[in-house]
Design a protein around this nucleic acid. Sequence first.
DNA 1: TTTTATCGTAAGTTATTACTAACGTAAGTT
DNA 2: AACTTACGTTAGTAATAACTTACGATAAAA
Lengths: 110, 110
Amino acid sequence: MAYEKALTVLSDPTRRAVFEKLRAGPLAVSALAKDFPVSRPAISQHLGILKGAGLVEDKAEGTRRIYAIRTGPLEELRDWLDSFWGEALDAYKTALENEGDDGHGQDRTG
Amino acid sequence: MAYEKALTVLSDPTRRAVFEKLRAGPLAVSALAKDFPVSRPAISQHLGILKGAGLVEDKAEGTRRIYAIRTGPLEELRDWLDSFWGEALDAYKTALENEGDDGHGQDRTG
DNA sequence: TTTTATCGTAAGTTATTACTAACGTAAGTT
DNA sequence: AACTTACGTTAGTAATAACTTACGATAAAA
């Protein structure tokens, strides 16, 4: 499941900021590192990790290397998120909120 | 922004597994820790972190403490994910692919 | 009251990881 | 040819965090 790796990779703030910056369009590494407080090799490492998760793709262009977003893993992550909504979950939720009516089968001597 | 904290919190495998187990319905701490290879205090700490991100809510029931999922931060996270789709991004993507047809596909996201 | 069960917290340890500095490579320029 | 630009990689370091053990607190049971 790629959503697990996407979650792990996007949990780092710097790496997430790099990914968000690519949302405006493909960029080269030095252009990406320009507005960050960390060094360029750090950005390179982050891009490598993002690439390992399938979240970006790269393309050589002369001496530069252009990175762009890939949305595939994001779709899987969204599907995983959607699995947390449903009738069963809602039923349990309302059961929890209704005090005095627990629906999970433990003895409740009042 | 709650989606950032949700991402960080859900990046840990054990914590994510705890959260997924709660998807089937509210559970007490010991019931949650029952099928995990880590100790009960570890589960307690994970639940505290999940609660700090608003991903779970708890309710005292005798000596037990029942935890249940809260979907609020998940909605914000899904909204954030949706921000990565759009005409502008697609336009950039196709522009990148058309610029030089090298046909390289680094789809090997192992 | 005494005992038992359930849970949260504190302290300490270990593994992970994000970072910098230094180096090597490839393509473009003069 | 030599020089410059852009980038990836390696080695080493420092900070983060997940975990265990031990302890204290609260509520039910005897």
